[in-house]
Write a protein that binds this DNA or RNA. Structure first.
Lengths: 222, 222, 222, 222
DNA sequence: ACATAAGCGAGACGGTACGTCGCGTCTTTAA
DNA sequence: TTAAAGACGCGACGTACCGTCTCGCTTATGT
């Protein structure tokens, strides 16, 4: 705000910032919080510790920023129909959770929910980011008449996200491995379950054959 | 069978174990992970560090056990009906998650899901413990005819637990504070949502093919 | 004093004492003070720590006793002449110092000369033990007229012992190794040097003028 | 040559080194080995333990260096005559051995003579340091014609040093105390004894063959 | 051209917790 | 009562990180 560049002295190398963030994510993903060391990050990034502490006041803040840099990928695409939207979202989410990088988001969110502040509002930001994507998806569905107007949105989103999260949590290491190759197979039952309430509510008759079959709503129209 | 007891030498004092676990929980609850020091725990328990390391190989394991000691309360009671059972379970779960003690379980489970072994089967144990309680609840419901026989159980449980978990994750510190006094108010919408599919089942008609069958989007027009 | 054996309860196993002492010497000789552990000694002796602490109040005392058990071997034999007596004594001493077990005596003596008491009068006992043997040898020499009557004994003994000690101290590990097979070769120059004063004295000619002069006994006979 | 100085990073503060060595000597002198704690030294020096372990790999090495810093004073001065040189050397040596600081050198040398490597060449350094001083003294004497050319030097030095060492070893605590105030009184008989062989050398006549040559006892009559 | 200022890699530094190990004591069972 | 086994309180060990602090060097701007 003061000016674009009244800076005196040597300007910061923007590449350094990137290398640090990448190294931070990499280190955390590989070794977890326990081995997430400032020295380690610095070394992997090929920089000195000064470069780190010039930019972030603490280890936590660094991790937070690194995380944010890499957490966009799970957005809900517009496929034209709620069912496919949800399936796509859940699949992306599952993939994200199964990826070390993505799981970091969960860990930080969980940690930040209780720890001695420090983490600031990381949790909030992460949660909001995902919530917005999901909310947008719902809004489209409402516009299309696929999602009943009065239906509360939050429980729907929380059940969806939560189901995928719990599902991952339930898997053992082998299961996680395999799940990466069979995302839809794992995700479908969950989506199916979560959608059943919504589906039922709209149209009287519906032929979405198969497993979703007759969660056919009370015949009456709305 | 439980104890062949060929034990030689001085037996471990069970009181020491208790004092340590209590001190651990106390210390953690008071000061959080940052100040959760082995020396501190030992001192508060009035024991030497040897007593700690004789029983637990690391700080993490100790914390895990300490919290396990306090995680029984979240079992699903038999209230006589599925709806009330689920409400009770979810309420207990919410209370548990809002308690620092309980939240640790989540953190540990999340951490252990990816960490380089280390935590080993902690996640497994925690998950199974909860799964069993829930499964028992469902079994009762099936016996009473409240839960359709073919209905897959896992998605139901995962959606339920996950919804509560995500709900807590969504709350900011203030929200968490308030939620402690309004458990049902927070839990009801979630339970309502999750149960909607089950409730519908007064009608037996159901043709759901096997799980995962059609990941093909509903053939219906758009 | 109360009686030879009015002892009640199980009597002490005398074999235990021996095994402990042997194990103590062995352990110390092998690994030095650093690894001279009560647990290690107990284990090597195949006994419990109680057996140790029933007999010795501390690690130091145990070592002291163990040491004493094994420090007799260097006594001055009566070969009939001073020169050969001294050579034999010095040779035995050198062998003793080159043996791990014997060197322990030196170490303990040196340690005990300054440490916070604890070691008690070990040094004293060790020193006295050797002194007596040497004094006896000198007495014989005096009787035979080989050792001048007025000649002070202590400097002679101290120079003799000290020379051997320093000689060992000067050797590097290899040198020590070799010295074990060439005891006399190493010892002769030292004996030679130390004895030169004595030898000379049978002969009257003497020119020790200088300040040291008058500790020479008044020329008169005694 | 001494320092190519390609040093990178912050250079070590030489003041820290000094403070640590001083604190080490101080702590040891005050409390003895038992209370010679790394933490204590660090605290007294006002530094962190890192500063200690950055320079010395273990407590022992630190002590060794600390005492080496204080062991210069026992060099043989050039007084112009062998007799006074030796007296001065022996007096200095006695004072050194009576000082806790100096005695440590002996302990370390004795320990290192057998220990499983560990101390490495400490013994060697200490021994050499003293040997050189004494050798220099002898060289001067030879130049002045006070010390016969063929006379073996090592036995002389070893007898001298050894006599003083044994003398100290013989003293009980009280004796040590008193000896500090009467150094010459204690040292003179020893010096006198050791020098007697050399002194005699106004008379060249000598029958003891060269050093190791005749380990056969002197042919002389008995 | 050259001083001034900041960035940067390297690593020393004061702290603090870790997990290990040893001491000397205590508590059990078996002999 | 001794003995083996081993738990226990205590406290030092040597290691690892944190976040700060110099170093020497590099890279820009301002005069």
């Amino acid at each position: 705000m003061t000016s674009p560049k009244p800076a005196r002295g040597r300007p910061r190398d923007p590449a350094v910032e990137k290398r640090i963030l990448a190294a931070a994510m990499d280190t955390y993903a590989r070794t977890g919080w326990a081995a997430f060391t400032m020295d380690a990050v610095a070394q992997r990034a090929g920089v000195g510790k000064s470069a780190l502490y010039l930019r972030w006041p603490s280890k936590e803040k660094l991790l937070v920023d690194a995380l944010e840099e890499h957490s966009a990928p799970v957005l809900a695409p517009d496929t034209g129909a709620l069912e496919t939207d949800v399936l796509a979202l859940a699949t992306g989410l599952l993939r994200y959770f199964l990826d070390p990088t993505g799981w970091v988001a969960v860990r930080v969110a969980v940690d930040s929910a209780v720890e001695t502040v420090e983490f600031g509002h990381v949790r909030e930001r992460i949660v909001r980011m995902h919530n917005q994507a999901a909310a947008e998806m719902v809004r489209r569905a409402v516009r299309r008449g696929e999602f009943p107007v009065g239906e509360p949105v939050e429980p729907f989103i929380q059940a969806l996200y939560g189901a995928v999260l719990m599902h991952v949590l339930t898997l053992d290491p082998d299961g996680r491995e395999q799940a990466r190759d069979r995302l839809e197979e794992h995700v479908t039952p969950l989506v199916d379950f979560v959608l059943s309430r919504i589906r039922r509510d709209d149209r009287p008759a519906r032929a979405s054959g198969s497993r979703g079959s007759t969660r056919r709503p009370p015949a009456g129209p709305r």
